[in-house]
Design a binder for these strands. Structure first.
Lengths: 201, 201
DNA sequence: GGGAATATTCCC
DNA sequence: GGGAATATTCCC
């Protein structure tokens, strides 16, 4: 798995396909959290850090949640609640990797890789296109499910389905474009390779 | 407690929504906006108000949006943007009732009626409440001749959309698989190529 | 004005 | 941790 990733990275560099994993502008939350770590790093770190990258730079540690909440958070966010910060981490797929301290990791959130933040996406709730209120109480629906209600609900579901279709189609377009680039690259590479071998023989 | 909830639901269903004012705890936004007006009223200076109830107490006026944004808003909310405040007013159904000044009204938001704030709801309906368009359609029971036909068409479209979605998803899976193969092929080819060149040299 | 994305809060 | 309501932002 790790090997796969490595290969991909090498190829991406060679191909100039840096944007292949959907690069969007990173969420404000991710930028702020990254910057907050860089700033912490730059500080005259004597012996009592509040928050910092872990030793490998593959994640970060909140050493002092209390100070972090009171001093750090309000300088970057509109609150000073540690739990709200954690909630956001979970939303973006970070994992708590230690039971003994507040250490978090995300594959795409690493020291020196601010440019990868755009690849991190919010966790989405289930792609169900069915309106939420239908899932709630079946009793109410039973007593009031008239033809008109069904009609409206159907229309809403259809609208959602169409939106979803558009998104899927865009995903396919992206895939196809990447495919073309890969094929072009492969054929160019074969040419180069053949020429080289010919020259050497 | 559970019994109370049940009763409320039954009553709402029987009476048709909107008849019996259901008292919930008011949204924080409403309480803060109300309190901010009361506080403004209590303040000493009478000649240069920032914000206040209108003369009848049926609404309120932001006399100085700039000062309001910079001084008042951050004391009650997590921002100092006038437009965010307006966005909230709209969300809760307030109406701008003057083109010449920032004056807003809401039927249930009146001076001396802090207890009525619980009757104000956000425009977006909650799961337990039926959407606005369903309420209106039950009152206007005039059209249902062509509805049936329409309904069938909608169901058909819905079925087709779901089928299409499945197909698109399969296409995406195929694309992804091909992508992996191409990448694997490319990387293997690079290895082979390098070995060949090395041998030949 | 309002739809929709993101942020913050609340609650299980 | 995460679902869901509310708040804030961004954009049309």
């Amino acid at each position: 798995m790790a090997q796969n990733n490595n290969n991909n990275n090498v190829l991406e560099l060679n191909l100039g396909l840096g944007q292949s994993p959907r690069q969007r502008s990173p969420a404000p939350f991710l930028l702020k959290t990254y910057d907050l770590l860089e700033e912490g790093e730059a500080e005259d770190n004597t012996n009592c850090k509040i928050v910092s990258w872990n030793s490998q730079g593959t994640g970060f540690v909140v050493w002092s949640p209390a100070e972090f909440s009171q001093l750090t958070l309000p300088r970057y966010f509109k609150h000073n609640n540690f739990s709200s910060f954690i909630r956001q981490l979970n939303t973006y797929g970070f994992k708590k990797i230690s039971s003994k301290r507040w250490e978090f990791e995300h594959e795409k959130f690493q020291r020196g890789c601010r440019h990868k933040l755009g690849e991190i996406t919010r966790k989405k709730c289930e792609p169900s296109v069915f309106p939420a209120y239908l899932k709630s109480s079946s009793e109410e629906n039973a007593t009031s499910s008239t033809e008109e209600n069904n009609h409206q609900l159907l229309m809403e579901e259809n609208k959602n389905l169409k939106k979803e279709r558009l998104e899927l189609q865009m995903q396919i377009d992206e895939c196809k474009a990447l495919e073309m680039k890969l094929l072009a690259c492969l054929s160019q590479f074969m040419d180069t390779h053949n020429n080289k071998v010919r020259r050497l023989c």
